[in-house]
Nucleic acid binder design. Sequence first.
DNA 1: ATCTATATAGTCATTTTTACAATAACAAAA
DNA 2: TTTTGTTATTGTAAAAATGACTATATAGAT
Lengths: 228, 228
Amino acid sequence: MNATNEIIDALSIDCVIFGFKDAAISILLVKHGQGVTKGQWALPGGWIMYNESIDDAAYRLLTAQTAVKNIYLEQYQAFGKVGRFPEKRVITICYYALVNIEKFELHAGGSVSQVDWFNIRNIPKMAFDHTEITKKCFSFLQHKIRHEPIGFNLLPKKFSLLQLQELYEAILDQKLDKPNFRRRLMKMNLLVSCDEKQKDVWHRAAQLYRFDKKSYDQLLDKGFSFEI
Amino acid sequence: MNATNEIIDALSIDCVIFGFKDAAISILLVKHGQGVTKGQWALPGGWIMYNESIDDAAYRLLTAQTAVKNIYLEQYQAFGKVGRFPEKRVITICYYALVNIEKFELHAGGSVSQVDWFNIRNIPKMAFDHTEITKKCFSFLQHKIRHEPIGFNLLPKKFSLLQLQELYEAILDQKLDKPNFRRRLMKMNLLVSCDEKQKDVWHRAAQLYRFDKKSYDQLLDKGFSFEI
DNA sequence: ATCTATATAGTCATTTTTACAATAACAAAA
DNA sequence: TTTTGTTATTGTAAAAATGACTATATAGAT
């Protein structure tokens, strides 16, 4: 067995973290503070240790470099072309997550000198093949969000229907009709009212809802398929 | 740089190959002919070389062990729990494909002593975590086939609408209404008539169709979304 | 009170889905 | 040659969903 504190040198992790704020989608990038890519922006990520699962590695690396924590990372897929990394052969496993930007305070950690959100429509030049990974992962998200209720992670626990609609409009890049969007979502029985309204808004306060994961899982068993 | 004929020792490939025949879904397994897992059934797969992409590795391994060739393998995802492989830490990248069973003649090759198809509802005990990988990959397929026209790979080039329906029924494990299924598919404009009918059937011969990938790609550009 | 911006409910023609009935074609059995 | 069994297709009508609107409600600000 290998020593538990060694890293696996042919394998890395990269995280594409999507955030939502002010009706726009952003991704979380780090600036490398050392090595040949010093000064370049890149996806948060790094090396996997022998004694941790790849899921754990993804979470550890993200948290160490950006201070974003307590989130669920899901694996997208591995990228393994021969020349994608300089000097040696490295295959990277890409994870993604959707988070509510306002819930996190960013802190650069580890080998990283800076952390920041970048609007998805205006991402900087990135190290390695990270631009390609990001684009593919975003396309994947655009498809996935239409067929699975994953968008709710981008919002606060309690959210209004307009917030939800703006999220979909931002990701899908298209306008949606308000009354119809509302009806469609309500009919699915996936949202439950919080018996609570918005506060400190200068207009009529909206009802707040939360996503009901239990109902969703039950519906899935019955063959339900989420569609937007 | 590493020698090009070396393998990457912490990384492997496994392939879940789905086949369709007689209204049932099967997967392709190999029996290991050597090593600690000698005599056990497992997914086709093995080690990645330094000078090949992971996509190429998947295809090479599958072809060498089973003689199934000229197919498109798509990556599903990596499996990387700590104890999933004995003796050392190995992360595996899972690929899948859908094929028409009748198009291939199986031949055991490489370190494999036997190759065969197994009905998905009755798979044997398998080495490592291959049972878990197979189940997850099949769930993934059940979801994916409803949102993307990937099922056509399981059929002959020319197929009848009933064949297509039986395929969906086998994967989704539910009965579908014949006239409605037919109408739904035809309305998508993804099938083109072959101007040819079934032969050697003792009942009324069905019209044969083929999947029109060009039309599908054009529709995709216009925002079309395949749904069953 | 009035204005303005948003929340939420209602309307209605149109399209789509669903469930089922009906007809057509063809090979083999009677 | 007629009947029978099996599958291929087409038809149809009620129900449901969709899409494009309109209308009303509620709040703070002027």
